[in-house]
């Protein structure tokens, strides 16, 4: 694996930890509402989907670069 692959894999790992690890403390604080009146837990998870999408998109668009 090259540096880009390692960086991308690390990003996915951090995303995963964010959802099931660090997110725990935030969620455990209660059922707060966030943007547009949506629950924090939903915004957090959708944010994760978005971050994953843009990370892979960036990875794909920069293919072939060192």
């Amino acid at each position: 694996m090259g540096k880009r692959e390692v960086a991308y894999a690390a990003f996915c790992g951090v995303c995963w930890l964010a959802v099931v690890g660090a997110g725990h403390a935030w969620f455990a604080s209660g059922p707060g509402l966030s943007w547009f009146g949506l629950p924090v837990s939903l915004v957090w998870t959708v944010g994760w989907v978005g971050a994953s999408f843009f990370a892979l998109l960036a990875f794909h668009l920069t293919r072939g670069r060192p």
């Binding site: 969620f27 455990a28 209660g30 509402l33 547009f36 949506l38 629950p39 837990s41 957090w44 998870t45």
Partner: peptide, 20 residues
């Protein structure tokens, strides 16, 4: 609306919105 719906759930059934 979606916002008022979640506001009602947060007030009356908060356990449903707390992950996991």
């Amino acid at each position: 609306g979606v916002g008022p719906m979640f506001a009602k759930i947060a007030a009356e059934r908060p356990e449903l919105l707390s992950a996991p």
